[in-house]
């Protein structure tokens, strides 16, 4: 196993507020890493530093290093290229108000692929990888917003997969979904893990326990504990981790 991400002494500030405090973490390739912790603990913020999505917010400052395959992503790199390597799935399904096809083809088109045959192939392959091809293959020209929430989320996953990312960041991807759709997304994550690295923020403890290899517990901007998921959920070393996973706070 090799390190996909190395995070070293990461501090992050929103203006004067320090949202992340000295985070150090090694994320392995082709594993699922779950980020847990109470609301406002910095886990989503941390996730968004990994594809520099926080750049969009004014007044954000990042110190320390985040290395992707050994390369510092906060040094002189092309953010758009970074984001093709690191896909993202959001909390609320956010398909664009256009057809399923156009949604999935969006990323490849943004990167200059114009040939219809090539796009057709990418779209089908991505929808298959997101385990939604059979459900939408007859409605591929329909507006993606007409699908159910669970389907929309898998369309969004297909859309992210269409640019062939090495890492998929998932920010509470099932919090807006019903239990059956949630299971589908979880199964999908486990399937995708064969090829790509997944980092998932979740409020759902069972979800973290079910699908992740490693779990990181955040509290007040600090990484309290980071270990094998089995260990975190059976014999956590830190009292605060134990309190959180047993539901004593948060």
């Amino acid at each position: 196993m090799v390190n996909k991400f190395s995070i070293k002494n990461l501090d992050m500030y929103y203006g004067d507020f320090q949202a992340l405090i000295n985070v150090n973490m090694e994320i392995l390739d082709k594993e699922i890493t779950a980020l847990i912790g109470p609301s406002g603990c910095g886990k989503s913020t941390f996730l968004r530093t990994l594809n520099r999505m926080n750049d969009l917010i004014e007044g954000v400052r990042v110190e320390g290093e985040i290395l992707l395959d050994g390369e510092n992503i906060y040094k002189d790199i092309d953010v758009t290229k970074l984001r093709t390597r690191i896909g993202m799935v959001f909390q609320k399904p956010n398909p664009f108000p256009m057809s399923v096809y156009d949604n999935v083809a969006y990323g490849p088109r943004a990167h200059g692929i114009k040939k219809k045959a090539e796009l057709d192939e990418i779209v089908e392959k991505s929808l298959r990888r997101a385990a939604i091809w059979d459900e939408v293959k007859d409605r591929i020209k329909k507006n993606a917003l007409s699908l159910s929430g669970g389907q929309q989320q898998r369309i969004c996953i297909a859309r992210a997969l269409a640019v062939d990312p090495e890492v998929l960041l998932m920010d509470e991807p099932t919090s807006a979904l019903d239990p059956i759709s949630t299971l589908k997304v979880e199964d999908l994550a486990e399937e995708l893990k064969k090829d790509i690295t997944i980092i998932i923020v979740t409020h759902n403890m069972q979800q973290a326990a079910r699908i992740s290899d490693k779990t990181a517990f955040f509290l007040n901007g600090e990484l309290i504990e980071f270990d094998e998921t089995d260990i975190i959920f059976s014999v956590p070393k830190d009292k605060r981790t134990e309190d959180y996973i047993t539901g004593r706070f948060g």
């Binding site: 969009l56 290229k81 609320k92 990167h111 859309r159 640019v163």
Partner: peptide
């Protein structure tokens, strides 16, 4: 969420404006 979706796919700001925001 539309802007984030587009930028998250590695689209540039201008591409995002003309292909997602304006439509």
């Amino acid at each position: 969420s539309y802007r984030e979706g587009s930028l998250g796919l590695g689209a540039t700001k201008l591409y995002t404006v003309f292909r997602v925001v304006l439509p």
